[in-house]
C-alpha cells in the first residue's frame, strides 16, 4: 500500500488532534519537522470527531481542522463524523 499523510502546524490546537489521530490509527508514524508535524500511514488514515471531542472536552467540527492543516496526500472523504484519507490501490 502507498503512504497517505496529513501535515499539521505544530501548536496548541493541533496537539490533541495529533493525539487523537494516533489513537485511532495505531500504525501511523509521526514525523516532526520545523513548525510542522507530518503523520504518515499505510494506505489509510482516519480522523474521528468523537476521539478529538473526548480529548478536548468540547464539541468539535471537523472543518475546524482546515485552520491548521498544511498539506495532505491521498483521496479525501469527509462526513460529519470523520475525515478519511486513502489510496484505492
Amino acid at each position: 500500500m502507498s503512504t497517505v499523510f496529513l501535515a499539521l502546524q505544530t501548536n496548541e490546537d493541533t496537539r490533541p488532534i495529533i493525539e487523537a489521530i494516533l489513537q485511532d490509527n495505531p500504525s501511523a508514524v509521526v514525523d516532526e519537522q520545523p513548525a510542522m508535524v507530518k503523520i504518515n500511514a499505510d494506505g489509510r488514515l482516519v480522523v474521528r470527531r468523537e476521539t478529538i471531542e473526548e480529548l478536548i472536552g468540547r464539541d468539535y467540527d471537523l472543518q475546524e481542522l482546515q485552520v491548521n492543516m498544511i498539506t495532505m496526500s491521498g483521496n479525501l472523504d469527509q462526513t460529519d463524523d470523520e475525515i478519511t484519507l486513502f489510496w484505492k490501490s
Binding site: 502546524q9 513548525a35 510542522m36 482546515q66 485552520v67 491548521n68 492543516m69 498544511i70 498539506t71 495532505m72 483521496n75 479525501l76
Partner: peptide, 20 residues
C-alpha cells in the same frame, strides 16, 4: 514568511483535493 506560508498551505489542502 513561515506564518503566511503555513497559513496559505491550509487552503492548499482544499485546492489539492479539488485538483485530484
Amino acid at each position: 514568511t513561515m506564518t503566511f506560508g503555513f497559513s496559505a498551505q491550509s487552503d492548499e489542502a482544499r485546492h489539492m483535493t479539488l485538483g485530484l
